[in-house]
Simulated scan of single mutants.
Amino acid sequence: MKDGQSHSTLREWRDHMARPRAVAIFAGLAVILTLIAPFETERAAGPLIRFCYWLLVAVLTYAIGSLAHCFALFRFARQPVLRVAISMLITAAGANLVVFGVTLLILSDVPAGLDLLLTIVNISVIAMIIAGIFHLLPDQPAMQEEHRSCALMDRLPLEKRGPLVALSVEDHYVRVRTLAGEDVLLMRLSDAIRETGDINGLQVHRSHWVALDQVKSARRRGDGAILQMNIGPDIPVSRSNLPAIRKAGLLPR
């Protein structure tokens, strides 16, 4: 399921980058930076060239940062410290490549010597701080958009709302597991499943439902199967549900 998970991450990233709000923010930021002309860019080029320069820098650095965030969030879901560190390092490296690449391409001038070193340090520190802030936010906009139709999220505390992983029955309760945490709700599993909205998932056992893009791997066990999730304990699959998970591509046919 690693390929399926990476495809889901890329799809979420592409959708986020293509949203009209994101496009408007990039354009607005480029206009502001064109007008104030920081880092002596006013001397290097005219308004149109400066606009193109700042637009490219804004779009590419944000694209790399948001992709690094999505990758780290899904790849290192169980390791929060490593998740933040990887995201910060990728973002810093990408931001430096973008700034120096676009500067060389459009302005044909990059700093040298000590100025080069100071510029790299400044870009890296700013990029890493911004990347760290992204991971501190309890509710990411991309998550809110993706799960807007999931009424089940409205029942959870704000700090535990996020990509849905699994639902499991515990006595008269349903344990709701997301990438942001877990909570128990007094309701039937069938009602909880109805409230998952358009999230692509399957009931794989009379007591368990899983989001397909959160399944890390699947293996046979006896006359059933076991699903390893991106976060939390494994989920059993009953024999009657084996055809469904084969159809979903989790097990060979």
Score class of each variant (00 low, 15 high):
Q5D: 06
L10D: 08
D15G: 10
M17K: 02
R21W: 14
V23W: 13
F26W: 15
A27L: 12
A27S: 07
A30E: 00
I32G: 09
I36V: 15
P38C: 12
P38H: 12
F39V: 08
E42L: 10
E42F: 14
E42P: 01
E42T: 01
I49E: 12
I49F: 15
W54H: 08
L55T: 02
V57R: 00
L60H: 03
T61K: 06
Y62E: 08
Y62K: 09
I64P: 00
I64V: 09
S66Y: 07
L67D: 01
C70E: 13
F71P: 01
Q79K: 11
P80G: 01
V81T: 10
V81A: 11
L82R: 09
I86Y: 04
I90R: 01
V102C: 03
L107Y: 09
G113M: 13
L114A: 15
L117T: 12
I120V: 15
S124R: 10
A131C: 10
F134L: 15
F134W: 11
P138T: 15
P138C: 12
Q140W: 10
E145Y: 15
H147C: 05
D154T: 01
E159S: 15
K160L: 13
A166N: 05
L167V: 11
V169L: 09
V169Q: 02
E170R: 13
V176S: 04
A180V: 05
E182Q: 12
V184L: 12
L185C: 08
L186H: 12
M187A: 08
R188Y: 02
S190N: 11
A192I: 03
I193F: 01
E195D: 08
G197W: 02
L202H: 01
H208S: 08
V210H: 00
V210L: 00
Q214M: 10
S217R: 08
R219I: 11
R220Q: 05
L227N: 04
Q228P: 03
G232S: 06
D234C: 05
P236F: 03
V237S: 05
R239F: 11
S240V: 14
A244C: 04
I245T: 02
P252D: 07
